[in-house]
Structure formats: structure tokens, C-alpha cells
Write a protein that binds this DNA or RNA. Structure first.
Length: 720
RNA sequence: GCGUCCUUAGCUCAGUUGGUAGAGCAACGCAUUUACACUGCGAAGGUCGGGGGUUCGAGUCCCUCAGGACGCACCA
């Protein structure tokens, strides 16, 4: 027996060394597996992309959970003989990354991005991204992820950039990408547009003011934003509202807080007669719904009274004031003029930017959009329908079916996707202008700048490049062998919090570009919370660093703790106590091995098994059958638990105890049978446990007399 | 407002297609130079949120009520 078993299992001495050996073997790469005869040339494929972590810093426990699940599945498939590919990569994460660096520069040097300029800021961001990338790759390896590093990708590298430009052009030519002036979600803090999904609503109480534009104006109007009223061009009431019927169509000129306004009364069914006074002041430039109402009634869109810095632009007393100051000023003015009729508290959902926390200012802006309601040429369906179709037909299934309902509900409410951002880090919009001319896709031939062309200043939403990840990582737009072999991928595994951001966008982009689903199955995991059930956050100081956890208890223990009993789609709680329990389990397995190896020296593996021992073998066969079915059905939380239970309470507590007198006894046949049994049971247990605890099982396997492959990682899965 | 999920042992959670309730941790009793930086054995603990229905049979399906979490939404 190897002397290493005389000491308790020490993951710190083992895990790094094992990972290095795996990596060196090249067996994470399916091509090597085929070359070495581990995988058959014509084996079924199983492919998966790693959801690329943002290059914004370090990995958290959510990432560790993701890796534990995905690596378990990939290792299982690899051992079962599948041609298995798991592609690693990282995401440039546009706004997220740029804002981290901007904050850093502001803090350390007191400079804004405009002080630095586009080129210099990009240098800083790229340096930061490179550093984050290296940290993240190290963390992925620490967790034991068996990713094929030869195929690593980055959402902003050359191959992926080309894919982005190609998809953009294809959509542009199909008339699905358009440039349009609309009300956007403007983040004054981040100085960029954001999509609807990047908004976080915060519940606050606001004041609802009821007022009249002037003493002789016939209709009182309610608002929570008096400062926007200097931009009003109309008042809308419900068509059936008897109170105001006589005024519909009439026009009024008023002077409101020194600003001359021309107000037309219109009837629109979107107005709720029961709310406030049943009349809405229409501010087309600073409210989405007002813009639409103005559209329907041919009211002017031109009146803009707030700028990108959330400051007033109307000439006079309000000019240059922040919106909050202007609000107070106007309320004072209304009071002094006797125009304020009521002031009441009302609950309000304030739209804020997810990344910066800035309060969203709706502004009209010329932006790039993806039209989700227009028929896709040649497909007979809109993008919305293309997103729904594979889910409805079952081409894509969700591991927890209820997410299918959530997904459908979201799509039913989906509007056009704003894809342009006014930041610098990301894929520059591939459109070049010269006068009235515009070309999309690739830059005009020759020295285009000299020829009078300029490229669009904006960059693309980071989810645009993330949306094509399943095929851009396989080399598209080249028709590569990888693409033909591994796409559609089999499984996407990610957090439910990015179902809309990412999963939905991948379905959209892939259906459009390839006419394929990006993946066949969606497995969504929940949030990792602390022992009290709170979200982990910097401000609470309850963050757990996967690296610290791995250093203290071992990556195997962390992985087991994250997987056992954690049903897909539901949040889980993690504590050091729980992880410690699985460190003890690793040690238990270690000692089981020590006992078995110590007591089976020189044993005959082919010895005939007694009836009792055959029964023990059959028990494990049943477990193996169960576990295989569980993992195939993505119930890996059950598989891991069953194995834990078997190894500890069946193999150790019952069979090992029962074996002591047999091995020390005089019945040579019984002893030989039992020795062969113990080695077989241990061998199979190691194989079954490997996907969940890859390091300790590999380390033991290397000392097993039953060793039948270079690495346990590529040993054959025990099929009953 | 629309939608989704949760409520099972003191705590955290399982319970795959309906067949007389399970695990981990905690707590209790006992054992222990044992393969085990500990571990083993044993006992205890639940009217499965309330009510109703379908069924030979419901933690599991349907309805309803209550409490909690979350997602979406242009209520000015």
C-alpha cells in the first residue's frame, strides 16, 4: 500500500498536482481522447459551452456552483464514452467592466473617462480585463473544471468580433436591425442607454401632485414629475370619460413657470380614468407612454426639456438646474400661483440602472434596435415567434419545467431590443456613414477614413456577442468541423437570473443566424445564499471566496456541498459547516481506501465470489443504475446524495465492519472472495463518485490494483 | 395589475411518473489507542400551512384560503 494513505487526506497537496497531470495529458480535448483510443471515433457527442464569466474581477460561489454541476455532467458523459466537449471562455462584459475601471480611475486619479479619452481608457480597461482573465482561469482550474483549453474563446477576440459583425450585417440586411429615434432608458450616471432588462425597479414613496397649467385651464392633471411638465404638449383623457368629453380636441396656450406651452386635449384609451384626476399631461420627450400617445394624436415630439445629465434645458429660471431642484422650484411656483390642488403620497417604482444605480431618465435618442415583431425573411415568423417555437415544440426543454412558463410570459411582453450603448469598451457598431450613405458589416474597402467615411461611435450591448456564444466559439462564420460536430450544443447550464439576458437571446440569435436551436436542454441553477439565507454581498461582508473555501476544505468538498440536495431552479444556503462535512467525507473515502488496500495485498481479483458477496455487488449495481439514470435526467443532486450515503453508511459502516472477521478468519475461500469484492466495490465507487469529487477519487485510483486506464477521468463508467 | 415558486422532523432541505414519510446538521443515551485530526451503535423527533375535491389510495393531481420569496409591467 502506498504510504500516502497513512496520513489524513490533504487536498492542498493533491488537487493542484492532479489538475496539472490531467491538463498535461490533453484528455480534456475530445480530439486527444479519440487519438488515444479513449473515445470511439463515431461516439455520440455531448457538448456544452461554459457561460463565460465577466472579466470584472473574481469568481464567486455562484460560479463555483455552476462549475460543480457542469463539470460533473461533462465528466460523467466523458466516462460513458461520449465525444465530450466543454468550451471555456470569458466575457468582456462591456458596461460592467468599463464602469469598474472608470470607478478605479476616478478614485485613484480623480479623472473621468472623458479626461482620459477613448484610446487611453481602452488601454486601462484592456489591462484590467487581462488581469481578471488570468485570475478567473486560475480559479476555474482550482475548481477542477475539465474544460478544453485549446478551444478557449473571448467575446471580444478576433474570431468572435468577426462573428459579431457578420451576424449584425445579416440582421441588418434582413431589415431586423434598424436605427430609430425613440424614448430610451438613459442612465445619466453611466452616460449610456441601457436595455429594459438592465433596469432595476426600486420601490419608493413619491408625491403625487394635482395641479392646473393655469387658472382657466379646465382640467386638473396629476403627476409625480412636475419638472417635466414644462415639456407638455397635450392632456390625454379616456374617450368615455364624461367629465372631460367637451374639452377633447380643444387647444390652449398657457405660460407655465415662465415657459409658454401649447396644450391640446386628446382622447386615448390608454388613460385610466380612475387614477388621479383621470387626465394625463403628455410629455412626449420624457416618457415612453407619452411618446406613443403623442404619436397616435400627431402631437409634437420636439419639445425636449431635460438633457443627458438630468438637467433642465428650458430657457429661464429653470435652466441648468437638476431635475430634483427643478421639481421643488415648480412646486413652489404652483403653490404661489394657487395652481396646486392636491399633494399626496403614492408608492412608486423608480427605474434605476442595474450597474450604476443611476435613476433612469427617459430621453428620445437615435439608437440601434432589433425588431422582434417583424417577419424574418424566409422563415414566416417574427423573432418573437422564433424564440417561442422551439420551446413549444419541445426542441428545447427546461430541466425545471416551470421556467418554460416564465420564459413564455417574458416573451409575450417583449419589445424591441435596444442594442447600442454609448460606452467605449465593446464591439463598435459595424456601420460606416458618408453623408446619406451607410454600409453595415465590414468597413468600406480601401482607406475609408480618407474617403470620407466615419464609423458609428457606439458599441453593442454585451449580450449581443454573448447571444451567439454557442456557435461563435465553434468558429462560425467559417464552416468548421467543430461547428458541424458539436452544434447544436446539448446543454446550457446557468443561473436563472440570466434566463432573459442570455438564454433567451441565444435562442433568438441562433434561430435567426443558423436556423437551429443553440442547445437542447436548459438547466437553470439558483442563487447561492449564506447560512441565514441572505444574498452574498460585499456590503454585508458575507461573501465566500471559492478559492478560500478550496484552500480550507478542498475543491472536492466545496463541489459536493454545492451539489448535494440542491435542486435546479431553487436557491440554496451554504455554510462552512456543510462544506466541512464533505471534507470529512473525502477523508472517510480516503480511510476506506486505506483499509481496503491494506487488507487486500496480493489478493486475487478473479477469485470466485460467495453468494453474500454477489449480493453486495448487486446492491452497488442497483445504485449504479439509479445514479446513471439520475445524472442522465439531470437529477445530479440525487445522484450525489445516494453515492454519499452508499459509501459512508453501506460500504464503510456495514460491509467493511462485516469484512474484518472474514479477512482475519480461517476460511480462505471466503477471504479471497471478500478481498476481491472490496477491491471491486471501491473501484466502482471511485468511478461513480468521480464526477462529483474528481480529485480525491483520482488520487486514490492511481494507487488501485484495479486501475484500468491512465486516469480515472477517462476510465469506463460502471454500467450495470 | 399579470405571472412563477415556496410552506414536510428544532434548523437546512430531499421526496423522479399518486401506493402506508427521508437525508444532513443540531440535540439525547451508550461505546471507543478503532481504517477514520475522530468514528461507531442506539433511541427520539412530522395530523407533510388551513379547508374542500378527484381516487381503492394524495406530501404528490384539482379548487380555495392564509403566509412568505421572486419575476414582469408605460399607471401618469
Amino acid at each position: 500500500m502506498d504510504e500516502k494513505f497513512l496520513k489524513p487526506y490533504n487536498p492542498n497537496e493533491t488537487e493542484g498536482r492532479i489538475y496539472e497531470a490531467w491538463e498535461k495529458s490533453g484528455l480534456f480535448n475530445p480530439d486527444t481522447c479519440i487519438a488515444e483510443g479513449v473515445t470511439k471515433d463515431d461516439a455520440l457527442t455531448f457538448s456544452m459551452v461554459l457561460p463565460p464569466p465577466n472579466v470584472t474581477g473574481r469568481l464567486h460561489m455562484g460560479h463555483a456552483l455552476m462549475l460543480a454541476i457542469e463539470d460533473a455532467i461533462i465528466r460523467f458523459k466523458r466516462m460513458r464514452g461520449f465525444r465530450t466537449l466543454w468550451i471555456p471562455g470569458t466575457d468582456h462584459a462591456a458596461i460592467a467592466t468599463q464602469s469598474v475601471v472608470e470607478k478605479q480611475v476616478k478614485k485613484e486619479e480623480g479623472l473621468s473617462r472623458h479626461d482620459l479619452g477613448r484610446e487611453e481608457l481602452m488601454k486601462r480597461v484592456q489591462a484590467f480585463a487581462a488581469e481578471s482573465h488570468d485570475t478567473i482561469i486560475g480559479q476555474l482550474k482550482t475548481m477542477g473544471a475539465s474544460l478544453d483549453w485549446s478551444r478557449e474563446a473571448f467575446t471580444l477576440d478576433e474570431t468572435r468580433s468577426r462573428a459579431v459583425r457578420t451576424v449584425f450585417k445579416k440582421m441588418y440586411d434582413a431589415g431586423l436591425i434598424y436605427r430609430g429615434l425613440r424614448i430610451v432608458n438613459w442612465d445619466p450616471k453611466g452616460q449610456t442607454t441601457i436595455s429594459d432588462d438592465e433596469i432595476v425597479y426600486e420601490e419608493r414613496t413619491a408625491k403625487l401632485y394635482t395641479f392646473r397649467y393655469s387658472k382657466d385651464f379646465p382640467i386638473p392633471v396629476a403627476t409625480t414629475r412636475p419638472e417635466t411638465k414644462v415639456g407638455d404638449v397635450g392632456v390625454a383623457v379616456h374617450p368615455d370619460d364624461a367629465r372631460y368629453k367637451e374639452y377633447v380636441g380643444k387647444e390652449y396656450d398657457v405660460v407655465f413657470c415662465d415657459v409658454p406651452l401649447h396644450i391640446k386635449v386628446v382622447a386615448d384609451k390608454d388613460v385610466d380614468p380612475a387614477f388621479g384626476t383621470g387626465a394625463v399631461g403628455i410629455t412626449p420627450a420624457h416618457s415612453k407612454i407619452d411618446w406613443e400617445i403623442a404619436d397616435r394624436h400627431e402631437l409634437s415630439h420636439e419639445v425636449i426639456v431635460i438633457n443627458e445629465y438630468a438637467k433642465m434645458t428650458v430657457p429661464g429660471r429653470l435652466e441648468g438646474k437638476k431635475v430634483t431642484e427643478a421639481r421643488e422650484e415648480i412646486v413652489e411656483w404652483l403653490k404661489s400661483e394657487g395652481l396646486l390642488e392636491k399633494e399626496e403620497e403614492t408608492p412608486q417604482q423608480v427605474a434605476t440602472a442595474e450597474r450604476t444605480g443611476g435613476i433612469i431618465e427617459p430621453l428620445p435618442k437615435l439608437q440601434w434596435w432589433i425588431d422582434v415583431n417583424k417577419e424574418v425573411p424566409g422563415r414566416g415568423m417574427t423573432l418573437k415567434e422564433l424564440m417561442l417555437d422551439p420551446v413549444k415544440t419541445g426542441a428545447i426543454t427546461f430541466v425545471s419545467e416551470h421556467f418554460e412558463k416564465v420564459y413564455v410570459h417574458w416573451i409575450e411582453n417583449l419589445r424591441d431590443w435596444c442594442i447600442s450603448r454609448q460606452i467605449w469598451y465593446g464591439h463598435r457598431i459595424p456601420v460606416w456613414y458618408r453623408g446619406e450613405e451607410a454600409v453595415a458589416g465590414e468597413a468600406p474597402a480601401g482607406d475609408w477614413a480618407k474617403d470620407g467615411w466615419t464609423q458609428d461611435e457606439d458599441t453593442l450591448d454585451t449580450w449581443f456577442s454573448a447571444g451567439i456564444w454557442t456557435f461563435s466559439t465553434l468558429g462560425w462564420p467559417e464552416s468548421t468541423k467543430d461547428l458541424a460536430t458539436y452544434h447544436p450544443t446539448d446543454l446550457i447550464e446557468t443561473g436563472y437570473d440570466i434566463l432573459f439576458f442570455w438564454v433567451a437571446r441565444m435562442i433568438l440569435m441562433t434561430e435567426f443566424t443558423l436556423g437551429q436551436v443553440p442547445f437542447k436542454t436548459v438547466y437553470l441553477h439558483g442563487l447561492v445564499r449564506d447560512a441565514q439565507g441572505r444574498k452574498m454581498s460585499k456590503s454585508l461582508g458575507n461573501n465566500m471566496d471559492p478559492l478560500d473555501v478550496a484552500a480550507k476544505f478542498g475543491a472536492d468538498a466545496a463541489r459536493m456541498a454545492l451539489v448535494v440536495g440542491n435542486t435546479p431552479g431553487t436557491d440554496m444556503r451554504i455554510s462552512e459547516d456543510k462544506i466541512k462535512g464533505y471534507k470529512l467525507f473525502a477523508n472517510k473515502l480516503w480511510n476506506i481506501s486505506r483499509f481496503i488496500l491494506e487488507n487486500t495485498q496480493g489478493a486475487d481479483l478473479a477469485a470466485p465470489l460467495s453468494e453474500q458477496d454477489q449480493a453486495h455487488l448487486a446492491t452497488l449495481d442497483d445504485i449504479a443504475k439509479d445514479v446513471t439514470a439520475d445524472i442522465e435526467a439531470y437529477r445530479i443532486y440525487l445522484a450525489a446524495e445516494k453515492l454519499y450515503h452508499y459509501v459512508w453508511h453501506e460500504l464503510a459502516d456495514k460491509i467493511l465492519e462485516e469484512s474484518k472477521p472474514i479477512i482475519q478468519g480461517d476460511d480462505a475461500a471466503a477471504k479471497a472472495s471478500r478481498q476481491a469484492l472490496l477491491l471491486t466495490l471501491l473501484d466502482r465507487s471511485l468511478k461513480l463518485l468521480h464526477p462529483f469529487m474528481p480529485f480525491v477519487t483520482e488520487e486514490i485510483y492511481q494507487s488501485m490494483p484495479t486501475k484500468d486506464a491512465s486516469f480515472l477521468m477517462v476510465a469506463k463508467w460502471p454500467e450495470a
